[in-house]
Computed example of a mutant assay.
Amino acid sequence: MVTTTRGRPARHVPPEETPPARTARDLLETLPPTPGFRAEVIDGNLIVSPVGTPEHSWSATLLSYALQPVVMEREWRAHVGGVNVCIDGPRDSLVPDFVLAPADCPRWGTLELRSSGLILVTEVVSPGSARVDRDDKPRVYAAGGVPIMLLVDPIATRPAVTVMSDPEGGAYQTVTRVQLGKPLRIPSPVDFDLDTSIFL
């Protein structure tokens, strides 16, 4: 851009520069939309992975249908995919397949729900996300104070659903795993018997 001032020669003014990203979180916040991909920050690393298959998202939708009576009775909010969760502390950003939150869940900015204000998160394991969903995310959610994590794992050698609760010291202290098709009790504050045959 060229500017002129009275009695002075024109000078070149460089356009404003965006400061370089210093962290994965900074980079995430500057990414353009990535249709067909999910961008998350886990342990300070930016991870971009393909979104799940239609069957993957259908599992999360079925869970939403199953929990609908509880959600409506307690005036909670159920979010199927697409809602970012900011992990309290490190500010990692995850996109669970299903989120259960109170209507007044605190936020980080306008777009992210804060992890410590949630009720439950769910991850549906797919071939491309198996290690992260099974190993990393339970630890990250527990450290962020998410009371309950549900892991739907249809691709395990023995397909199963696991509920984890009582986060303490960066780990869930109570873990219950059932074979897909068996009933599973989701603990307080949800207090719900889930028929996992919905995922078959």
Rank of each mutant, 00 (worst) to 15 (best):
Met164Thr: 05
Ala156Asn: 03
Ala156Lys: 02
Thr174Lys: 12
Thr196Lys: 00
Ala21Glu: 04
Ala24Val: 01
Leu63Thr: 00
Cys105Met: 10
Tyr141Asn: 05
Val13Lys: 04
Leu62Phe: 02
Asp26Gly: 13
Ile186Asp: 06
Arg8His: 12
Ala103Cys: 00
Arg114Tyr: 01
Pro20Met: 10
Pro187Met: 15
Ser165Leu: 10
Leu150Pro: 05
Leu27Thr: 09
Tyr65Gly: 03
Thr110Met: 12
Pro50Trp: 07
Arg38Asp: 01
Glu168Arg: 08
Leu150Phe: 12
Leu194Gly: 00
Gly36Gln: 03
Val140Pro: 01
Val124Glu: 06
Glu168Val: 03
Arg25His: 06
Arg185Val: 03
Leu28Asp: 03
Thr122Val: 13
Thr53Ser: 15
Gln179Ser: 14
Val85Glu: 13
Ala78Arg: 08
Val146Ser: 09
Ala60Trp: 00
Leu200Pro: 04
Pro50Lys: 06
Lys137Gln: 12
Ile42Ala: 14
Arg185Tyr: 00
Arg8Cys: 12
His79Met: 06
Arg38Lys: 13
Asn84Pro: 05
Val152Lys: 10
Pro54Phe: 03
Val71Ile: 14
Ser57Gly: 14
Phe192Arg: 13
Ser57His: 04
Gly82Lys: 06
Leu63Val: 01
Leu46Val: 09
Val70Thr: 07
Thr34Tyr: 03
Ser59Cys: 14
Leu118Asn: 08
Pro106Ala: 15
Thr61Ala: 15
Val51Ser: 07
Leu67Thr: 08
Leu184Lys: 03
Gly82Val: 01
Leu100Thr: 02
Glu73Asp: 02
Leu150Ala: 01
Met72Thr: 14
Asp43Glu: 02
Asp92Ala: 05
Val178Met: 07
Ser188Asn: 05
Glu29Pro: 06
Gly44Trp: 04
Phe98Met: 02
Glu29Trp: 00
Asp135Ser: 13
Trp76Gly: 04
Val51Gln: 08
Leu94Gly: 07
Lys137Asp: 09
Glu55Lys: 02
Ala143Val: 05
Tyr65Lys: 15
Arg22Asp: 07
Pro138Leu: 11
Pro96Cys: 03
Val163Tyr: 14
Leu111Asp: 11
Thr30Gly: 08
Val13Thr: 14
Ala142Val: 01
Ser57Pro: 02
Pro154His: 14
Gly145Ala: 10
Leu111Ala: 09
Ser197Thr: 08
Phe37Gln: 11
Pro50Glu: 06
Ala171Met: 10
Arg139Phe: 02
Met164Gly: 08
Gly52Phe: 07
Thr61Lys: 02
Leu180Thr: 06
Thr53Gly: 14
Ser49Trp: 02
Val178Asn: 11
Leu118Asp: 09
Leu111Thr: 14
Val2Ile: 14
Asp166Ala: 13
Pro9Leu: 15
Ile42Trp: 05
Ile148Pro: 05
Pro90Ser: 11
Thr3His: 11
Pro138Ala: 06
His79Ser: 12
Val99His: 10
Val175Lys: 13
Asp88Glu: 14
Val125Ala: 05
Leu113Gly: 10
Asp97Thr: 05
Phe199Thr: 09
Ser188Val: 04
Phe192Asp: 08
Thr5Tyr: 10
